[in-house]
Design a protein around this nucleic acid. Structure first.
Lengths: 179, 179
DNA sequence: GGCACCATCTTGTCAATGACAAGTTAGGGT
DNA sequence: ACCCTAACTTGTCATTGACAAGATGGTGCC
């Protein structure tokens, strides 16, 4: 068919972008390459997202929503929440890569800000339930340690002795924080 | 003058790259823009670095050397070492941005690997002196928490209440780890 | 003093890209 | 039946990274 109206292009472009970014990073992302993979013309992506920053804004927003889902699924336990954060980073590497790189997208986009706030609340809530205290400093420490571990893991900077199971290694590391 | 032989181009290009990357991230870096700022022809950078990945390889190597210097200056105390790590990230934002993004450069470059190993040793050494134990898990936790804090700070993801002094905030956070 | 060498830098070119402008198609509402 | 608008296409331009080939001048060597 290859009908003139694709019908589902926006969704397809986002998932194709996830593959492309996971392969070679956000810097190497090409709108024309995405269009080629989706079988549409080189200017089709611009219609849905305006420009490259627009696409990455939508992509980051989707990422924050996926993160919120993952944190919700982890339940109330703080350790599980931390492991889920790392699991999200590993499983949705492309999203994670973009989400914390605001110079790639429009950080003032309302939908993005809302999605980011939703996932942030889940993180802070987990910490507050665990310590019972004002969560500021504890939440910051917990967020830092899981975010740092995830980032280092993804960057390949960790020595091989850490093993090949990021979530198990993360569990060990997080345990050091509240002991 | 504008003599045919610049004489110091390699060094100038690296420091110009630092400015450009600090302004708009490594993704937006343009070799031609660097050449323009340095007042040389558009192909001059390629002579010194081969290609863009070559320049970023040299840049990351310089970054690991600067990090090692900063860690050495911090002395033997673990807390100070952690604060120095964060201080390095904030003060040399552009280098830090590239160092942990191996898809941007040639991660198999021997000089880069050597520089990275030198700074890694300083980190592990600091942790070993502090705990007296086999440093693996503790070093990983300490590295994760400072790296995560630095990354979150640079990405602008932290709420305003954290304040505007990254090193002071880092000190508070790191203290939660070994308490 | 002169000469050859070669790292350094320039000019020229090509394919790929992001952005934009203008045109085409089809489907939904009235 | 008709239009009207979102979805997509074709065409174009400036910019970029990479490469090839040439120009320049300092350095060592006799």
């Amino acid at each position: 068919m290859a009908s003139y109206h694709h019908g589902d292009l926006r969704r397809v472009l986002l998932s194709t972008a996830a593959e492309a970014i996971a392969e070679s990073g956000p810097a190497a992302l090409s709108l024309r390459e995405l269009a080629r993979r989706a079988g549409v013309s080189h200017a089709a992506p611009a219609h849905h997202f305006g420009d490259k920053a627009g696409l990455l804004t939508a992509f980051a927003t989707q990422g924050f929503d996926l993160l919120a889902d993952a944190l919700r699924r982890a339940g109330d336990d703080l350790l599980d929440t931390g492991v889920a954060y790392v699991g999200f980073a590993v499983r949705h590497r492309a999203h994670f890569d973009v989400m914390f790189r605001p110079e790639l997208y429009r950080a003032d986009d309302p939908e993005l800000i809302a999605a980011r706030a939703r996932s942030g609340e889940l993180l802070r809530g987990g910490v507050a339930r665990h310590t019972g205290r004002e969560p500021d400093a504890d939440a910051l420490a917990a967020w830092s340690i899981v975010h740092g571990f995830a980032t280092l893991w993804l960057s390949g900077a960790l020595p091989p002795r850490v093993g090949d199971d990021p979530e198990a290694a993360a569990r060990t590391v997080i345990r050091r924080l509240f002991s």
